[in-house]
């Protein structure tokens, strides 16, 4: 009799052990891919299997990064781009959600605006860049506008769809209490759509980076996008690749933050 719970305990330990083992295997492979990629890059650049002028090498990039850190210039560039991206991201998501709320509020407006939304969504937003620059001036306003405009329409469409798909019985419950349209929106429509809004945030993180980098290609004197285009112009591809790596790191951090936010919100709503 006494050995039975002991047996279960043992099996449970085994199960936890197998989970840990699996995790260790995954991590090991991930590390090897990472190390292999950079080692191969370094080696092939060293042995000139690839053109070191175009593809640079990890050691040179690190060297460059250290010098940029020492003179402090890299921080201005990073700060500039991250600031623009965060602002563009927030603006795009917020105005997209507000637009979606307006469409939900006025069924007539949503019918009228439907074809325009389809056209605007289909159009490549970065093509608007030159117009934005002329209209808003060649400064960071137009770059932020690029970061925002690239995500606003798709946010509107996705969030509006989720507003419409909220179970009408929730509205029925509220209406029997005499709730106004505003109360229905606040109590049912918006909170029920939070998971969708969060998942559009994840998409928008990536989109805003695209918008801002393209914006910086076009006008900027500062920022990571500027470094890329500058490196390209002076044929310093080490600079281009370094900027690319920094962008990858910061985009990942932003994405992780949104995921953290998602876990927080979903946890409290469930």
């Amino acid at each position: 009799m006494k050995s039975k719970p002991h047996r279960i305990e043992q099996l449970h330990q085994q199960y936890i052990g197998s989970l840990l083992r699996e995790k260790r295997i995954v991590r090991t492979y991930q590390f090897f891919i990472f190390a292999f990629f950079f080692a191969l890059w370094e080696l092939s650049s060293w042995l000139e299997w690839i053109d070191p002028l175009i593809f640079s090498s990890p050691s040179k990039i690190v060297e460059l990064l250290i010098s940029k850190i020492q003179d402090g210039s890299i921080f201005t560039h990073i700060g500039f781009t991250v600031f623009e991206t965060i602002l563009g991201f927030i603006l795009g998501t917020l105005s997209g959600t507000l637009l979606a709320a307006f469409l939900w509020w006025s069924p007539l407006a949503s019918k009228v605006l439907d074809p325009y939304l389809v056209i605007l969504n289909a159009m490549p937003k970065v093509a608007l860049g030159p117009i934005l620059i002329v209209a808003l001036g060649p400064g960071f306003t137009s770059i932020i506008a690029m970061g925002a405009i690239i995500s606003v329409i798709i946010t509107t469409i996705v969030v509006y769809t989720s507003f419409k798909e909220v179970d009408p019985n929730y509205i029925k419950v509220l209406k029997t209490f005499g709730a106004s349209r505003y109360v229905c929106f606040k109590e049912a429509i918006l909170p029920a759509s939070f998971p969708t809004i969060i998942s559009t945030l994840k998409v928008n993180v990536g989109l805003s980076w695209v918008g801002v980098i393209v914006g910086e290609f076009l006008v900027s004197q500062q920022g990571l996008g500027y470094l890329i285009i500058y490196g390209f112009q002076v044929f310093n591809f080490g600079l281009v690749l370094m900027s690319l790596l920094i962008i990858a790191i910061f985009a990942t951090i932003m994405y992780q933050l949104v995921e953290y936010l998602e876990r927080k919100i979903i946890k409290s709503s469930n």
Binding site: D167, N169, Y170, K172, V173, L174, T176, F177, G178, A179, V183, E187, A188, P191, A192, F194, S268, S269, N270
Partner: peptide, 24 residues
């Protein structure tokens, strides 16, 4: 009005749910 299903708001606590009508 009571429906086939409870239609309690899943993001509200029981307290918030039962006081909802009064609040509105």
């Amino acid at each position: 009005y009571m429906l086939q299903q409870d239609y309690l708001f899943p993001w509200k606590t029981i307290e918030e749910n039962i006081l909802l009508g009064l609040r509105i």
